[in-house]
Amino acid sequence: MEKIKVEICCGTACYLLGAAKLMNIEEELPENLKDKVDIQARTCLGLCERDHLGGAPYVKFNDTEIMGNASVEKVLARLNQLVEGAEQS
């Protein structure tokens, strides 16, 4: 199975609005996710402009799916869904 790509926006806007907490998410990954995800910190992904900020901090999954108002809990929950979905198919 291909690893799920997770890009955390660490641009200054996302950083100010809460991304600082997301930067340590790698350490909080549970055993079942550890070898299945590839977490990358990114400079500004340009998403805050499109949405007029409302949803920073942003996280992007597999180059396509965008999550706004991201938190460690929300990202982990989504990763679990993605992993389960991939295992079932």
Partner: peptide, 17 residues
């Protein structure tokens, strides 16, 4: 620092870059 951060964010400047 918050206000400086807002200026950097507004002008799309990432410290790390």
């Amino acid at each position: 620092f918050e206000e400086l951060g807002a200026i950097l964010a507004g002008r799309k400047i990432d410290v790390l870059a």
